[in-house]
């Protein structure tokens, strides 16, 4: 059984500065693996470890940062045997559909993939769309918001938390799933895992090697703006008699 766990490298939130025109300044941002994706990797590992001979591999798509050695060691130390990276200097121009297209092409190139596990959403845009689009492009069944999963006899059994029930579903493999953010706690790598991660293979494909026509990937990003911050009004309404004026004031700002 071959399982692909997908991850995206995203800018560290606390390093993002907002410029005076509300655009985002990422120039000082360090990069990290999206937190939701670490959960997906852990779920892939748990499914894989329960299957004798299963192989868990990683897949990412992004700019030059995909080959950053420290980031690579950090994520490969979470357990997978090896991984693939698709490098594209214009990856930031790709939306969820574009990303799903690249991943679908890469998974096809990897070959014989039984299961793809994605995180709840990316750590930056968080559109939660890549997994379902990917499954549609690959013509495979998909379930999102999975909190537990196990594979047996060519089938995947998943559990999902609904509002007042737990849904148990089975889907035939090959399939695509995305996890909930709290599905499982990512394992913490120790020194042995970190040292071993440095030796694990990462196959790097340039975007052209995966997808010959990239025109559909390129979107023009008009702007990405931070919501305008407003100073607190610090208006205090005292006593029950001021209730009406309090409601009026709320209405004015809403």
């Amino acid at each position: 059984m071959k399982i692909v766990a997908c991850y995206k490298l995203v800018p560290e939130d606390r390093d993002i500065n907002v410029n005076s025109d509300l655009t985002l300044d990422l120039s000082k941002a360090t990069w990290k693996v999206g937190d939701y994706d670490l959960t997906a990797i852990e779920m892939a590992m748990r499914i894989g470890e329960a299957q004798e001979g299963a192989e868990v591999v990683l897949l990412t798509y992004g700019g030059d940062v995909v080959t950053d050695q420290k980031l690579k060691k950090g994520v490969y130390a979470r357990g997978p045997q090896m991984g693939y990276a698709v490098r594209d200097n214009e990856a930031f121009c790709s939306d969820s559909f574009g990303t799903a297209r690249v991943l679908a092409a890469a998974i096809d190139k990897i070959g014989d993939v039984d299961l793809v596990v994605c995180g709840e959403g990316s750590g930056d845009i968080y559109s939660q769309q890549v997994a379902p689009i990917l499954a549609t492009l690959m013509k495979r069944p998909v379930v999102n918001a999975v909190k537990e999963a196990s594979a047996e006899g060519g089938q995947l059994t998943v559990k999902r938390d609904l509002e007042d029930a737990v849904e148990v579903a089975t889907l035939p493999l090959p399939a695509v799933v995305s996890t909930t953010s709290e599905a499982c706690k990512p394992r913490i790598p120790g020194m042995k895992d970190i040292l071993a991660a440095g030796k694990k293979e990462q196959v790097v494909w340039e975007i052209g090697e995966v997808l010959s026509d990239q025109s559909a990937l390129r979107k023009e990003v008009v702007n990405t703006l931070s919501p305008a911050q407003k100073e607190r009004a610090r208006t205090i309404f005292e006593g029950i008699d001021s209730l009406d004026s309090f409601v009026d004031a709320l209405r004015k700002v809403m």
């Binding site: 060691k73 130390a77 913490i188 790598p189 970190i194 440095g198």
Partner: peptide, 17 residues
Amino acid sequence: TDEQELLLESLEEWIEG
């Protein structure tokens, strides 16, 4: 080294969780 930095990050993650 990368390895030392990652180990310290791991420790922070362990302590947090």
